[in-house]
């Protein structure tokens, strides 16, 4: 198991390195932060001077190596706009993003799994069809639109929840629902098909024949086996979830890393973009590692298989 984890971490390091090269090149090709830092009327001499001060006049390779050297020491450089450490800017925003993605995942799972199980048990029923239609609708609905609709309904019309911002639990409800609805459809459909598949297996029939209580059959024998693809997909979906978080954070003025990164991209604040992208990538890698470990925990065959390697 230790070898397995070490192997995955080494992989993660290369993923982050690759990502840093790509973001670095894309940003430098895309535009120039100096023009956004200076007033529009700045002379060419002012532009050249500031470029030199920020070290942006050096060859790209030199700039990248300097960045990499500092990054290895945990220093992503200073934001070009705030002159603050990019790393501390990201750390400041991290709790908000984690809170939102975690709450969104919980809402998503709380809706998707019971619905998926119910739809599978009552296959072909009205409930099954309704949840399938709901899932298709949920998948088709732009997350941005859903967020605005929830705000109009609960904040403007009913006035029961705040429209935006972060602070109390009430502030978390609408963004978490928005992100949850984004995550739920795929998970629900996977649960449903996974359960349908498992419920026809011989061991389920055996369990039922042995007289095991239906609840235990469903949740211990069936769901545990159906959960393997769900957990795997959850890891993969995490990247998508962060994408959804960018939109959710913007709509709800949620002060997280995703919206920090969006603003930094718009202003070519290289150090902050690089820092946040590497950070988010690391997060995705870690979450995927954790889901792999969770799958191994759920499914002893994987654990044993890994042990034999």
């Amino acid at each position: 198991m230790t070898v397995y984890v070490a192997h995955r971490l080494l992989q993660a390091l290369f993923v982050c390195l690759g990502i840093s090269v790509i973001t670095f090149l894309l940003l430098h090709v895309a535009g120039d932060p100096v023009l956004l830092l200076l007033p529009q009327s700045a002379s060419d001499a002012d532009v050249a001077l500031l470029k030199q001060k920020l070290g942006l006049d050096r060859p790209l390779v030199v700039q990248y190596i300097a960045f990499l050297g500092d990054a290895l020491k945990g220093d992503f450089g200073q934001s070009l706009f705030t002159q603050e450490s990019a790393f501390s800017l990201i750390l400041e925003r991290m709790p908000a993003t984690l809170e939102l993605t975690l709450a969104g995942t919980l809402v998503g799972l709380a809706v998707a799994i019971p619905l998926g199980v119910l739809a599978a048990i009552k296959r072909g029923s009205f409930l099954d069809r309704l949840s399938t239609v709901g899932a298709v609708g949920g998948q088709a609905m732009p997350i941005f639109w859903l967020g605005i609709m929830l705000i109009i309904l609960f904040a403007v019309k009913l006035r029961v929840l705040p429209a935006s911002g972060r602070g109390t639990l009430a502030h978390l409800i609408l963004p978490a629902i928005t992100l949850g609805v984004y995550l739920a459809p795929l998970t629900m459909r996977l649960t449903r098909s996974g359960m349908l598949d498992v419920l026809t297996q011989d061991y389920i029939r055996t369990a039922r024949a042995k007289g095991v209580v239906e609840r235990v059959v469903l949740f211990k024998h069936a769901l545990r086996n159906a959960a393997i693809p769900i957990v795997t997909i959850l890891g993969i979906q995490f990247g998508r979830l962060l994408g959804g978080a960018i939109v959710t954070e913007t709509v709800f003025a949620w002060p997280g890393v995703a919206s920090l990164a969006v603003k930094a991209i718009r202003t070519y604040d290289y150090p902050v973009v690089q820092g946040s992208v590497v950070f988010l990538a690391l997060l995705i890698v870690v979450v995927n590692l954790l889901t792999d470990l969770a799958v191994a925990w759920i499914d002893p065959r994987i654990r044993l298989g890994a042990g034999r390697d």
Partner: peptide
């Protein structure tokens, strides 16, 4: 001074008294 990037959200906040 609150930061609200999305204009539609700003208007919703104004109408809801936020």
């Amino acid at each position: 001074f609150r930061v609200i990037p999305e204009p539609a959200t700003q208007i919703a906040e104004l109408l809801s008294g936020g």
